[in-house]
C-alpha cells in the first residue's frame, strides 16, 4: 500500500484546498463575531484586576481599605478630572440615627430632593433621586393618593399636605434580607448601606422595599464634573457605575463626621430633624418624647422605620 497522494486536479485547481479556505473564512468570521459580542466588556475599561480581586468590605484590613480608597480616588480623577477626598467612615459608638419630618411645616418645595442629588453625586441623566415628595389631599394618609409630579406654580397648595419619602432606614430591613450576595447590610448606627463594588445588580432589594427607596443605575451615570461633590465616602456618595443599586444613606460622608444631612440643611422651613436617638438631649429625642409622632410609614409592614413623621399641632 502506498501513501495516498493528493489528486493532481486539486493541486492544480488552487494552491489552497476549498475546504481549508472555507474553514479559514468561517474561523475568521466566527472570531470577529466573538470579538464583537464581547465588545460591551470594553466599557468595563476601568475594571482593573485590583478591583476584580477586591475583598468583601467586612473582611478588608485597614491596609486593604487604604489601597481601595486610593484606587477610587484615581478612578474618579481619571473620569472627572477632579481629585476627590474619599474616606471610609465607620459608625460612631453610642450613636443611632433617627430622622423626624414635620408634616405640618413641609411646603413641598422639593429643595431637599435636589440638595440630595448635589450632595450624593446621583446621575443627572438619567435622573436618579433618593427623595420623592408626595402631594397628598388633606384627611388621608393613603400614599396611593399621592402625586409625585405636581407642577404647581407655587406651593403649598390649599387643601394638600406634602410628604417627602426616602429610605426609612428600617430596623428590620426587607432589602437586606433578600440580597443574595450580602452587598447591603445594616450598620450599628442604623444606616443600611450598599457596597457598590459588591452589588451584582439583581434588583431584588428594589422589589423588596415597600417605600420605593432604592434606585438602579440602568445606564452609566452622568454627572457634570463641575457639580461633583468631592467629599466622598466608600459606603456613601462615591460615584456609582452602571448596573448597581443605590439609595439614601443619611449622607454618611456628613453624618458620620458629626454634621447634619444635606436635605436637612437646605430645608427652608426647618421641617427636617435629625440626630442621635440614644442622646436624650438631641432634637429627635425631644420630638419623639413631646410631639404628636403620627406614623412610621406603612408600619403594618413590620419594617420598623427609623424615619418618623410628626405634626406640630
Amino acid at each position: 500500500m502506498s501513501a495516498p497522494t493528493p489528486s493532481p486536479d486539486r493541486t492544480s485547481d488552487a494552491a489552497m484546498s476549498r475546504r481549508s479556505f472555507l474553514r479559514g473564512c468561517a474561523a475568521f468570521g466566527g472570531l470577529t463575531a466573538l470579538a464583537a459580542s464581547l465588545a460591551p466588556l470594553r466599557e468595563l475599561g476601568e475594571l482593573t484586576s485590583e478591583q476584580f480581586l477586591q475583598k468583601y468590605y467586612k473582611e478588608m484590613t485597614p491596609e486593604d481599605m487604604k489601597k481601595v480608597l486610593a484606587r477610587i480616588e484615581r478612578e474618579v480623577q481619571h473620569q472627572y478630572g477632579i481629585r476627590p477626598h474619599v474616606r471610609d467612615l465607620k459608625p460612631m459608638d453610642g450613636v443611632e440615627f433617627v430622622y423626624a419630618l414635620n408634616l405640618t411645616r413641609c411646603i413641598g418645595c422639593r429643595k431637599c430632593v435636589h440638595a440630595c442629588v448635589a450632595e450624593n453625586n446621583q446621575s443627572r441623566n438619567p435622573e436618579i433621586q433618593y427623595i420623592r415628595v408626595l402631594k397628598m389631599p388633606h384627611g388621608s394618609m393613603d400614599v396611593e393618593k399621592g402625586d409625585h409630579n405636581y407642577t404647581d406654580a407655587s406651593v403649598p397648595e390649599k387643601g394638600f399636605f406634602y410628604m417627602p419619602v426616602q429610605c426609612q432606614q428600617c430596623k428590620n430591613p426587607p432589602c437586606v434580607k433578600v440580597c443574595p450576595v450580602n452587598a447591603t447590610w445594616q450598620e450599628k448606627d442604623g444606616i443600611t448601606v450598599i457596597d457598590y463594588d459588591w452589588c451584582i445588580g439583581c434588583r431584588y432589594c428594589e422589589a423588596a422595599c415597600p417605600y420605593f427607596a432604592r434606585r438602579f443605575n440602568f445606564t452609566k451615570p452622568e454627572i457634570p464634573p463641575e457639580r461633583l461633590n468631592t467629599n466622598m465616602a466608600y459606603l456613601g456618595n462615591r460615584p456609582r457605575k452602571q448596573g448597581v443599586m443605590e439609595k439614601c444613606h443619611f449622607c454618611i460622608q456628613r453624618t458620620r463626621a458629626g454634621r447634619y444631612p444635606a436635605c436637612l440643611e437646605v430645608c427652608p422651613v426647618g421641617a427636617r430633624k435629625f440626630g442621635n436617638i440614644l442622646d436624650p438631649n438631641s432634637e429627635v429625642s425631644y420630638i419623639l418624647r413631646e410631639k404628636r409622632v403620627f406614623i412610621q410609614l406603612k408600619e403594618e409592614m413590620g419594617t420598623s422605620p427609623r424615619f418618623f413623621y410628626y405634626f406640630d399641632k
Binding site: I107, C109, R110, H148, N149, Y150, T151, D152, S154, V155
Partner: peptide
C-alpha cells in the same frame, strides 16, 4: 408660598 423645584 414658593415656586417648587422641578418634578422628577
Amino acid at each position: 408660598t414658593r415656586e417648587p423645584a422641578p418634578p422628577p
